Simulated assay, not measured.
Amino acid sequence: MTKARLPAWWFDNAPVPLIARAVSSVYGDVTRLRRGLYSRHLLRQHRVPVPVVVVGNIAVGGTGKTPLTIAIVERLRDAGWTPGVASRGHGRREERTPRWVERNTSPDEGGDEPVLIAMRTGAKVRVDRDRVAAARALAQAGCDIVVCDDGLQHYRLARDVEIDVADGRRGRGNGQLLPAGPLREPIERAMRCDFRVVNVGAGGDGEGIAGFGEWPMQLVPGDAHPLVGGRPRPLASFAGQRVHAVAGIGNPDRFFAMLRDRGIAVVPHAFSDHHVYVAADFEFGSKLPVLMTEKDAVKCRALADADFHSVPVRAELPEAFWIALLDRLPPRTQDTTA
């Protein structure tokens, strides 16, 4: 079983090893040099013929980027846009090969998050290590706006809106750069984003707090859906029961806490992000219902039985956030193939 483990010094105030500090210093120099080359236009940013909204984070680990991406796609569509999603597609078998991702694409070919986005939204999804190429392909396919999932550090792609997503409970850890801390870039980088969204918990459970200038996001769970077919059942129907809870995401503890907050007795099983499941992973030694995230469920249908359920979540933000986001976008145009 591949467990999800993060260095103790990232979030638990443990001493940072000297080697980690040394590597972090070099990493910081490299990231500063790279940002400087782009800001001085010595490295070129490429603009595509449609607006680009980038959703990302400066800290390693799950913050809720995928649910927010799904919510943004749905809101843009409601506002009359035709959004497409660009993603690298982490964890797919051939990461060097660009491809379109559809509802029925296997996760090993499209990546778990892109497949989930395609299933939930029905939008065009393009996976490519080169986000510029992915955005261009989406524009040529008729999308009049591109949402880039997890692309904050991909500076080659020029963007109209940047959204940083942070975890309200873990915050940004010890505030240090990799590997001394969980940060891909300094905290000041998040301050320069157009929007800073904070995942404050599941349905207002009070896990985290959004500060001044930050927008609170709640991930509200829906009904539990059987992986092998059948009617969904209310998540509340598991209250008072013991369940095996499975999460192979950036922050498994958040999923477990969400279930516990609803009175469910959780036997936790944390796996690494983008874990590739095999049957042996579910040899738990006791026959209990299995609840897992949607991201895990897209990879586990062939391994599931009637006891397996996925728990979808919906990102909810203040209406003022959506008004501000739409107001930040340029006017819509009809021709996206130029």
Rank of each mutant, 00 (worst) to 15 (best):
Y38T: 07
S39Q: 15
S39T: 10
S39C: 05
H41T: 07
L42Q: 14
L43Y: 14
L43S: 13
R44Q: 11
R44H: 06
R44A: 12
R44L: 03
Q45G: 14
H46N: 11
H46A: 08
R47S: 15
R47E: 13
P49Q: 12
V50S: 04
P51Q: 15
V52W: 01
V52D: 00
V52I: 10
V55W: 10
G56K: 02
G56M: 04
N57T: 12
N57M: 12
N57H: 13
A59W: 02
V60W: 14
V60M: 15
V60H: 10
G62W: 13
G64L: 12
G64Q: 11
P67N: 07
L68C: 05
T69A: 04
I70M: 07
I70W: 07
I72P: 01
V73T: 10
V73D: 03
E74S: 08
E74L: 11
R75Y: 05
R75W: 05
L76K: 00
R77L: 08
D78M: 12
A79F: 10
A79K: 08
A79S: 15
G80Y: 08
W81M: 07
T82G: 05
P83V: 09
G84C: 03
G84P: 00
V85F: 01
A86W: 03
R88L: 12
G89R: 06
G89W: 08
G89K: 05
G91H: 10
G91R: 09
R92L: 04
R92V: 03
R93Q: 02
R93N: 00
E94P: 00
E95H: 05
E95C: 01
R96M: 10
T97D: 09
T97R: 15
P98H: 14
R103Q: 13
R103G: 12
T105I: 07
S106K: 08
S106I: 01
P107Y: 09
D108S: 11
D108L: 07
D108Q: 13
E109S: 10
E109Q: 15
E109T: 07
G110F: 09
G110L: 09
G110K: 06
G111K: 11
D112G: 13
D112P: 08
P114N: 11
V115Q: 01
V115H: 00
V115G: 02
V115D: 00
L116E: 04
I117L: 01
A118N: 06
R120I: 03
T121N: 01
V127N: 02
V127P: 00
R129G: 13
R129P: 00
R129S: 12
R129H: 06
V132Q: 04
V132T: 12
A133C: 08
R136H: 15
R136G: 11
R136Y: 09
L138C: 10
L138G: 01
L138E: 04
A139E: 05
A139P: 02
A141M: 06
C143I: 06
D144E: 07
D144Y: 05
I145N: 00
I145R: 02
V146P: 00
V147H: 00
C148E: 06
C148K: 02
D149K: 05
D150W: 09
G151I: 11
G151A: 11
Q153T: 09
H154P: 01
H154G: 02
Y155A: 11
Y155V: 04
A158K: 10
